[in-house]
Amino acid sequence: MTNVTTIAKEMEEALRADGVRITRQRAALLKVLAGADDHPDANELHRRAREIEDTVSLATVYRTLSALEAQGVVHRLAFEGEPARFETTNAPHHDHIIDLETGEVMEFRSEKIEALQALIAEELGYEVVHHRLELYCRKRK
């Protein structure tokens, strides 16, 4: 089974656990979500899912995304000034750089940043359980 198929199956199981029926429309959306290597918003997911199953409605996309988020298998990313974007939760931890000029979202991981966050939390008497880091940047000229 490919990674996309495995991820889609995990999302399908999460929906079923939430009492959501797996229709052709939802299966198309799950396939698109599982195969996304970017951070699409609901409209883009809708467009891509309709390429597979032309009866997918935007309402189905929103309802399905909400159920997937509630089950913890999809992250809703709310970047400043942008519509919410989505990614599956199966990827290793990473942070994001958002290009303010193009809207492009890039993933990165820095052990230096991770270590510094843990050190700061420890100095204040805490342990990092979860965090999200977003850097809003412009290209240097």
Rank of each mutant, 00 (worst) to 15 (best):
H131W: 14
G72K: 04
E123P: 05
E82L: 13
A36E: 14
H93C: 04
F86P: 00
A84R: 08
M11H: 10
I120Q: 08
P83R: 11
K139F: 13
V128M: 14
E111P: 09
A49T: 11
L77C: 06
T23P: 05
K31S: 10
E122S: 07
L33E: 14
T55Q: 15
Y126C: 06
E114Q: 13
N43M: 11
E80G: 08
V129F: 12
V73W: 07
V4F: 00
L15M: 10
H75D: 13
I120A: 11
K139Q: 14
H131V: 02
T60F: 03
H130P: 00
G103Y: 07
I113N: 07
C137Y: 15
V105K: 01
Q117E: 10
G19D: 09
T23A: 04
C137H: 13
T23S: 15
R76H: 07
R85I: 00
L135I: 15
E104N: 12
E12S: 13
I98G: 00
A17E: 13
I97P: 01
R21Q: 15
R21T: 14
T5R: 00
V56W: 07
V20L: 04
E122K: 11
A34G: 14
A59G: 02
L135M: 12
L135G: 07
F79P: 01
I22D: 05
A8W: 04
E10H: 04
L133R: 06
